[in-house]
């Protein structure tokens, strides 16, 4: 569904991505793990067209989207839940969710998805009219994920959705990721919580200083010695 070939990104003089190759298959959960500063967020942001690529190609459903503007990529069905939630603080919960559906026209369908998101996150329904800035961190994260879902993505990319959340809520988020995936959405997940991510992933990539150093089915990587040492703290 999404193919990344030899992706290179420079921030001024910093060579952040050095030829990343990845393949996200339709209907799968793929995770991307790596140390701080490895280039995980940069990979997702450059797929979305937020960061210019200095070399390489991104192919989505057979189409070259390397230089496609962000708005068209969103329209094409890719959604990014950005690192650090990034909810719109002075808008209400409902307005934030509706912004997720900004490019959609069919009111009835939007309403249906709104109800679906409220079903996934009942807390958001209780707080429908609350200003996003006043939500707790976990609630903001739910809102960020819900907002991404409102675009009805075919590929959902999540940048550290469990960051700063209590273990019980993290578990809830992972359950929901599975649920979203079962609803037919392909998922590309960045996680610090490597064990939990690898457990639910069909396939995973390990990124180190801008290059993929290891890849394989999630269950295999969990037992890999290098991964254990570097990311699972074992």
């Amino acid at each position: 569904m999404l193919k990344i070939e030899n992706l290179n990104v420079h921030y001024g003089g910093i060579h952040a991505l050095r030829g990343v190759n990845m393949h996200i298959e339709q209907g799968k959960i793929i995770s991307l793990i790596g140390a701080n500063g490895a280039g995980k967020s940069t990979t997702l942001r450059s797929i979305m067209g937020l960061v210019p690529k200095s070399d390489g190609k991104v192919i989505y459903k057979g189409e070259d989207i390397t230089t496609t503007p962000t708005i068209k990529i969103v329209k094409g069905g890719i959604s990014l839940t950005p690192e650090g939630r990034k909810v719109f603080p002075d808008l209400t919960v409902k307005e934030n969710l509706l912004l997720g559906a900004y490019l959609r026209k069919n009111k009835a369908e939007i309403q249906k998805d709104l109800e679906w998101v409220y079903e996934l996150f009942p807390r958001l329904l209780e707080r429908e009219w609350q200003i996003a800035a006043t939500l707790s961190g976990g609630e903001q994260q739910m809102l960020a994920v819900g907002r991404s879902l409102m675009s009805r993505p075919q590929l959902l990319m999540m940048d550290e959705p469990s960051l700063g959340l209590a273990p019980i809520i993290v578990k809830g988020i992972f359950d929901i990721i599975k649920q979203i995936n079962e609803a037919g959405v392909s998922v590309l997940l960045i996680e610090q919580n490597a064990k939990a991510a690898l457990e639910i992933s069909d396939y995973a990539y390990v990124l180190e200083t801008g290059t993929v150093v290891l890849e394989g089915p999630g269950k295999e990587l969990i037992t890999n010695d290098e991964v254990k040492k570097a990311y699972l703290g074992a």
């Binding site: 979305m48 937020l50 962000t70 708005i71 969103v74 329209k75 959604s79 990014l80 950005p82 990034k86 719109f88 603080p89 002075d90 808008l91 307005e95 509706l98 912004l99 997720g100 900004y102 490019l103 907002r147 675009s151």
Partner: peptide, 22 residues
């Protein structure tokens, strides 16, 4: 809707772009 987009953009260009706002 355009007003909502204006409020969003005034806060955060990049996230607004991710919503598909021009």
């Amino acid at each position: 809707k355009i007003g909502m987009a204006m409020r969003a953009v005034s806060r955060d260009f990049e996230t607004s772009r991710l919503m598909g706002i021009q």
